[in-house]
Each structure stands twice: as C-alpha cells, then as structure tokens.
Amino acid sequence: MKIKDERIVSASRRILNETYLLVMTFALVSLFSKYYFLKLPMSSYVTELVMIGGSVLYIIVRQLTLGLEIIHSTHQAKLWWSLAAVGLSILATIIAGFQNYQQYHAKYQGVFDKHFLMALVFLFAANLLLTGVIIATLYWLNRRGQASFERRINR
C-alpha cells in the first residue's frame, strides 16, 4: 500500500502557507508605501493590487466550493463582522481624511472646519456603505455555499 508521506506533505503546506503570508505582507507594505508615502500613480502598484485582490478572491471561491464557512451565522460572529466593518471604515476615513487635509488645507480654517468635518462624515458613510455591501455579499455567498454543500451531503 503506497501512500504519500503525510508528514512531509503537511510540512510543505505549512511552509507554503507561511510563504504566502510573507509575500502578502510584502505586497501590502509595498502597496501602502507606493500609494501613501511615494504618491505614485495607480499603474505602479497595480501588480500588488491584482496579487492581493486575486488571492483573496481565490481563497473565498475555494472556501465556498469546499463548503467551508467564511462568515458564521452566530450572533457573536455577526457582531464581530459589524465591528470589523466599522473599524475598517474608520481606518479608511482616517487615511483618506489625512490625504484630503494635506491636499486642501489652504481651503480649510483648521482641522475643525465644518467643511472638513462634513467631508470626513461623508467619507465614513461611503466607506461604511461599501464595507457593508462587501460583507453582505460575502454573507449571502456563504449562505448559498453552505446550502449547496448541505444538498450535496444529503444526496
């Protein structure tokens, strides 16, 4: 009876997993540096965007096809995802708000200028809406994936 050495397969997978995390970390740092510090055009960091976006999409599709739950339907999980959406929106608002102020500070009368505060509120609402739509789509896809997996098991 010939079987592949599971210990080596498992160790190789662990190494690949760590390598993926390292590459993604470098890609994120590179993307952030090019966008935020170096202020380079999008064409210079499109590779990183495709890498990160593509791999995230691939992970989601693979998890759905294998019947793994991306978002659990428990109350605690829903609360966690809601907090994550608010947290991500706040982070995105801080980054965009900082850039906005650097670019248009001459037009504002200080940080508490009502136009700047309005811009921040608008940015936060837009970010929250976008994050909410993404999470709701993931939740819907997750429910569909789970239902399809259940049908496959019952068959």
């Binding site: 592949k4 050495d5 599971e6 210990r7």
Partner: peptide
Amino acid sequence: QVGVTRQTIGLIEAGRYNP
C-alpha cells in the same frame, strides 16, 4: 511498505509525530 520516509516512522516511534 507504507509509503512514507524512514524519518516519519522514527518520529512516530519517538512519539514526536501524531500520524
């Protein structure tokens, strides 16, 4: 015979790998 490396058998016997 079982299709693994000698090290794996050694590690199982030593109790350092859970097959």
